[in-house]
Design a binder for these strands. Structure first.
Length: 729
DNA sequence: AACGGAAATT
DNA sequence: AATTTCCGTT
């Protein structure tokens, strides 16, 4: 009986699979968190709470301990763990919910994309709006859905690098089976693992890793480059309507999963074209491949299964929840529907109501038990706010405040047309980076205050704190070209610091302080920040959940950003697109406007004080010295990157995400590929993307829903759950 | 408590 | 690449 639903929140199964993270061989923290979150056993330690995707670490020390156990890092503590979580901010996987202790929030968009870049809902979406716009106003009309380009869809941004990466990683993992290094037998992970498997939560969805892999092993090599895989291909592969490989229902277990989805988010079959096309080899990543595992109901064709035992699935329940969530979030939480539209498979985690108090503690850890009892009690008492049960997502109404800030249609003025808009790009911050002084160096040079010395050496402008970067940061329109990049920089830099080599190091970052709304529920802002999908908006996206510091916006082309700050405005800012909308990417801008602001109205439950565990902090051990490295990207490159990006955007309006996080190589690669592909499509829109959405959802949800249903079915057929055993230790 | 830079580790 | 470790700052 532990379905995701029980827990109250549900992510697609894959979300919980470590393997779903392309980039990592080992389990990733976010994944681990998700794991904990899904288990009731750990609800005393960490649990969903508050807004969509928001969770609270009730017992930081315990979480840290568990994490440490999992990673075989006995010295893990919350401080370290939290550092890792903070790294997610930039990656936009997570955000901090300000004002709430130990409270963070997931950004599902990111997760989805990261995990399933190939799942391109946009195709679906492009043809049809998948769900209702947050605000039923006529606004929807203004949005058009640009023809999607396959390439686009797949084009990942930062995190989603090419699916290829995923492939390889997966392959790798498969090859190795499992990672382990921890000699420590007592891994906490076992706890978790047990829980997962033991629970049988997925009723069979979970794959039994053991059984199945019939050896399909190697086949998944994609024949087609992932990028090229068209939506059609995707679906074909899934076995469109025809459902080549067997009926879903045929298998026992499957049956119930496949029941009709009342609310499927998906529109009609995505395969516009030659329906008849037989499926060709699945170009998809292994993860996608449908594994013909025995338990999989809808296993398409046996041949396809690349990965043994791995599959991921979109089950109806999830879908349903997703929809509900979607609606709810849209209406209640003010989340960006865009996100969901893109990834219907995501389900909203509902702060679930504790009725099952009893269940909680017994299981997993005796160790935690003590704590649990206390905490548990408190917690339960604590949250009272209920969210509407997932009953009737479809129409519901917004809570009182949700307010539709924009009663009037709110065309995205910001939507730019390809050529028309001035390339106001986001201003970038150029920070001088102080010469790296390694810890060693610091130590070596002056043990006492190495840090300061480093700063001073940096340039005379010791003023800049790492965070603020005000001291030497410059910001200006992204129009670097005009700035003549290097020239500008060099100028400023000249005064500034030079690295040992003599080259100035400058960090170019987008200034996204726009959000700056301390007042405005920081939480959400970022969360839906336009991520991958919204790439067009990305430049301006508030990438830092906390924009705490500087609000300067020096000259930065005073353009748009500085305007009134109403909710609307804020949002606009957020979504402001520097470049024209990328053609296939985000079919639904519609919703862009409204939501962010709405949610803050919701009173959040104050998390209970949760007594912090004391936990002694273990002594840290000094790592062995390593080779010194400098990670600064050469100035040139930075500019280049920037520049090319701009161009790209103009040309193709591709998304761009310039996070420092992202390595330029990737971007470059991406850019190029994208650029080529994209060109074609913009034609339609000529300027504004006028192509009207196939279905306007002007106002009603109904139509879309129907469509969704269909797709859902297809997906069901096609999907499989990803499960790889990944026990580490 | 939370943030984020820097270096080290895996 | 994703942390882990350390740590100064806010």
């Amino acid at each position: 009986m532990k379905t995701p639903g029980d827990t109250g929140f549900a992510f697609p199964e894959w979300a919980y699979k470590p393997e779903s993270s392309p980039g990592s061989r080992q389990i990733q923290l976010w994944h681990f968190i998700l794991e904990l979150l899904r288990k009731e056993e750990y609800h005393d330690v960490i649990a969903w709470q508050g807004d969509y995707g928001e969770f609270v670490i009730k017992d930081p020390d315990e979480v840290a301990r568990l994490w440490g156990a999992r990673k075989c890092k006995p010295q893990m503590n919350y401080d370290k763990l939290s550092r890792a979580l903070r790294y997610y901010y930039n990656k936009r996987i997570l955000h901090k919910t300000k004002g709430k202790r130990f409270t963070y929030k997931f950004n599902f968009n990111k997760l989805v994309l990261v995990n399933y870049p190939f799942i391109d809902m946009s195709s679906t979406g492009s043809s049809v709006p998948q769900s209702a716009p947050p605000v039923p106003t006529g606004a929807g009309t203004h949005f058009r859905f640009p023809p999607s380009t396959p390439s686009e869809v797949l084009s990942p941004n930062e995190d989603l690098r090419s699916p290829g990466g995923m492939f390889s990683s997966v392959a790798r993992r498969m090859a190795r089976g499992s990672v382990s290094d921890c000699s420590d037998g007592t891994s906490a992970n076992s706890e978790i693992e047990e829980g997962n498997t033991g629970a049988g939560e997925e009723r069979g969805e979970r794959v039994v890793s053991g059984g199945g892999p019939g050896g399909g092993g190697g086949g998944y090599r994609s024949i087609i480059h992932p990028r090229l895989a068209s939506h059609e291909a995707l679906f074909r592969m899934y076995g469109g309507p025809g459902n080549p490989a067997g009926h879903p229902g045929s298998r026992g277990p499957a049956a119930h999963r496949i029941h009709p989805e009342p609310l499927s988010p998906f529109p009609a079959s995505p395969l516009p074209g030659p329906g008849g096309a037989s499926l060709l080899a699945p170009p998809l990543s292994p993860a996608l491949s449908m594994t013909p595992t025995s338990h999989l109901p809808y296993t398409p064709s046996p041949t396809l299964s690349p990965m043994l035992g791995s599959h991921f699935s979109f089950n109806p329940e999830d879908m349903k929840r997703y929809l509900q969530a979607h609606t709810q979030s849209v209406y209640n939480y003010g989340l960006s529907p865009r996100a969901f539209l893109q990834y219907p498979n995501i389900v909203i985690p509902q702060p679930h109501r504790p009725d099952k108090a009893g269940l909680t503690a017994e299981r997993g850890a005796a160790e935690r038990a003590e704590r649990a009892s206390t905490v548990g009690g408190g917690e339960r008492g604590g949250d009272r706010h209920h969210h509407p049960p997932l009953g009737h997502p479809t129409h519901h109404h917004p809570h009182p405040h949700s307010a539709h800030p924009h009663p009037h249609s709110h065309p995205m003025h910001h939507s730019l047309h390809l050529g028309e808009e001035p390339p106001h790009m986001s201003p970038f911050k150029f920070k001088l980076q102080p010469p790296p002084l390694g810890r060693k160096q610091r130590e070596g040079q002056s043990q006492s205050k190495a840090r300061q010395s480093s700063l001073s050496s940096g340039s005379g402008s010791g003023s800049m704190s790492s965070t603020s970067g005000l001291g030497s940061s410059l910001s200006f329109g992204s129009d670097l070209s005009s700035a003549s990049g290097s020239g500008l920089i060099s100028t400023s830099s000249s005064t500034q610091s030079l690295n040992s080599a003599g080259l100035p190091k400058i960090k170019v970052e987008p200034i996204s302080d726009i959000d700056s709304e301390e007042e405005v529920e920081v939480t959400d802002i970022s969360d839906e920040d336009p991520d991958e999908r919204d790439e067009e908006f990305e430049l301006f996206a508030p990438r830092h959940p906390r924009a705490s510091d500087h609000h300067h916006l020096p000259n930065g082309s005073a353009r748009a950003q500085q305007q009134p700050h109403t909710d609307e405005d804020l949002e606009e800012d957020v979504f402001k697109a520097p470049a024209p909308p990328p053609p296939g990417l985000m079919p639904f801008f519609t919703s862009q406007y409204t939501h962010s602001g709405v949610h803050r109205m919701l009173p959040v439950i104050k998390s209970e004080p949760a007594e912090p565990g004391e936990s002694s902090t273990p002594p840290s051990q000094p790592p062995a010295a390593g080779a010194p490295q400098t990670k600064c990207i050469p100035l040139k490159l930075r500019f280049k990157r920037r520049w090319s990006e701009d161009q790209r955007m103009e040309a193709s309006q591709e998304e761009s995400d310039d996070k420092k996080v992202r390595p330029e190589e990737e971007r470059e690669r991406e850019r190029q590929s994208n650029g080529q592909m994209e060109m074609e499509e913009d034609g339609t829109g000529s300027g504004g993307g006028d192509s009207p959405p196939m279905l306007a959802y002007e106002g009603s949800l109904a139509a879309p829903l129907a469509l969704h249903r269909r797709v859902t079915a297809e997906l069901h057929r096609a999907t499989a759950q990803l499960s790889l055993e990944n026990k580490d230790c």
